[in-house]
Nucleic acid binder design. Structure first.
Length: 443
RNA sequence: GACCCCAUCGUCUAGCCAGGCCUAGGACACCAGGUUUUCAUCCUGGUAACACGGGUUCGAAUCCCGUUGGGGUCGCCA
């Protein structure tokens, strides 16, 4: 039997991290078994399902590489099939019309539960059972003639040939009803696997109020799709060995429903960030540069006044230090503008305190005296001067760093100076000197 | 409230189904040290968990029962 899994979201706004995780597990399982991953857009709630929401859903899935193997099925196009099924159930006595009296719109179609216990083997949670007494008949078609979720869901899963329903924990109770529906419809039920919930950093179920809950937001913040995918795959599942950073192929090869955790998992943004850093560093140079360039453009720092070579030199210096591409302008913006901000604390600590400005003057002199500006020459000049003054190298390094970058940390100073070039370095030192030596500014 | 599910370091987890190899392993985070001019990276070390109580057994994180705590579901929403 060929495995067919599906992701069946209702496009009512942004895609939630918990939902997309379900999609990831479905995709992974289909790939692992050589089966097909399908998408069914449950857009029957027209009031909430907008074209915009659908578009965003598809875009996000594409971004994560969750491409369906067949054309998506839009549930709104299936109404007649759903209603036919309801009619069939009415005919053979599995359903009946009744007015539950809560809409004032007349009779709805209710499914008649067979009055016996239902049980199934959940591939994640094990054997589950529900007593007949704990289940009631339920509406499958409204008085206004539209089909209800349970009916539509089952009819479409049958039509799509879905063999494995892998979905959120919140659907376990529905499964018993669905099982009865499959039976009444004369169809063999698929296997079921219910995924544990994902909870937020406070340990509470995600709500719309939680920031950081939408896939689109992760994208905007600069998380790489492979990193997010990898991280999410590890929430509620593990390969059983000590691997954490895993390629798509490795994840596919290792993924089984059997290894899915039964308990809820909490999102840890710091671990996600770490993982993103891993993926950033592993990126091919050109891709990383493209991300940096994009971030610079957004920050309005990409002027075209700099050569390709210069830009690439900067990237090379920054690659180990930027965990999220959008942070690049913040950390490396000073390479691209003379109008960079000074970190207040750094200025206080490195320039305004004990001999900071003197050190700067010394370095202005030392650096002004050399012609070629390479990491070697600038380092030699600095160390020489430090020795002459009887100071540690750090006493000269830090003030220069702050003067030319405005920041307390960053790439190696000498590499930085070489990339910046003598002219700009001296100009920046001069400007820092006049700006911070001014007694008005001082103290 | 009823029904159902879950329970290992702060977090994600390995181990549990097939009880001894577990003085419970890994990762993130954190702390200390090393490397580095700084930050990041990298290396070394460390703190830290089987929710509780019974039982079964020669032996329990692993099996059973209960307690507690958490979660889900009880719509003519999906």
């Amino acid at each position: 039997m060929n495995v067919r899994t599906r992701f069946a979201p209702s496009p009512t706004g942004d895609v939630h991290i918990g939902n997309i995780r379900a999609a990831i597990f479905n995709w992974l399982y289909a790939r692992h078994t050589g089966g097909a991953f399908l998408l069914r857009v449950e857009d029957t709630d027209r009031a909430r399902s907008t074209d915009e929401a659908c578009r965003r859903l598809l875009e996000v899935m594409e971004w994560l590489g969750l491409t369906p193997d067949e054309e998506p099925l839009y549930q709104s196009t299936r109404q007649s099939a759903h209603l036919e099924a309801a009619e069939q159930l009415l005919q053979n006595g599995h359903a009946y019309r009744a007015d539950k009296g809560d809409t004032g719109q007349g009779e709805a179609v209710l499914f008649r539960m067979p009055g016996r216990d239902f049980s199934f083997h959940d591939d994640v949670k094990g054997d589950l059972r529900k007593a007949a007494a704990d289940m009631k008949d339920f509406v499958i078609a409204r008085a206004n003639g539209t089909p209800v979720f349970h009916l539509a869901n089952v009819v479409d899963d049958i039509a799509m040939g879905v063999t494995h329903v892998v979905r959120g924990d919140d659907h376990v109770e529905n499964t018993f009803r669905h099982l009865a529906l499959y039976e009444a419809l004369g169809a063999a039920p698929p296997r079921f696997a219910h995924l544990p919930m994902i909870v937020n950093a406070q340990g509470k179920p995600y709500s719309k109020r939680d920031g950081d809950a939408f896939v689109g937001e992760f994208r905007e913040k600069g998380y790489l799709p492979d990193a997010l995918f990898n991280y999410l795959a590890l929430l509620g599942w593990s390969p059983g060995d000590d691997r954490e950073v895993m390629s798509r192929d490795e994840l596919v090869a290792a993924f089984t429903l059997e290894r899915v955790q039964a308990s809820a998992a909490q999102v840890d943004l710091r671990k996600l960030e770490w993982m993103n850093g891993e993926y950033m560093r592993a990126l091919p140079e050109a891709e990383r540069e493209a991300l940096y360039r994009d971030a610079l453009e957004r920050a309005g720092l990409w002027s075209g006044a700099f050569s390709e070579e210069y830009f690439r030199d900067v990237c090379a210096l920054m690659q180990e230090r930027v965990k999220l591409a959008p942070l690049f302008p913040e950390q490396a913006g000073f390479f691209f503008t003379e109008d960079f901000a000074f970190d207040e604390k750094a200025v206080r600590k490195r320039l305004l305190k004990e001999g900071g400005l003197d050190a700067l003057r010394q370095m202005r002199d030392a650096l002004g005296a050399i012609d070629s500006f390479t990491p070697e020459t600038t380092e030699a000049a600095l160390r020489q001067r430090a020795e002459t003054l009887g100071l540690g190298a750090g006493a000269l390094v830090h003030p220069v760093r702050v003067a030319v970058s405005g920041l307390p940390g960053g790439p190696g100073l000498f590499e930085m100076l070489a990339v910046l070039g003598k002219e700009r370095v001296l100009a920046r030192i001069d400007r820092a000197l006049s700006r911070f030596a001014d007694p008005v500014t001082e103290g």
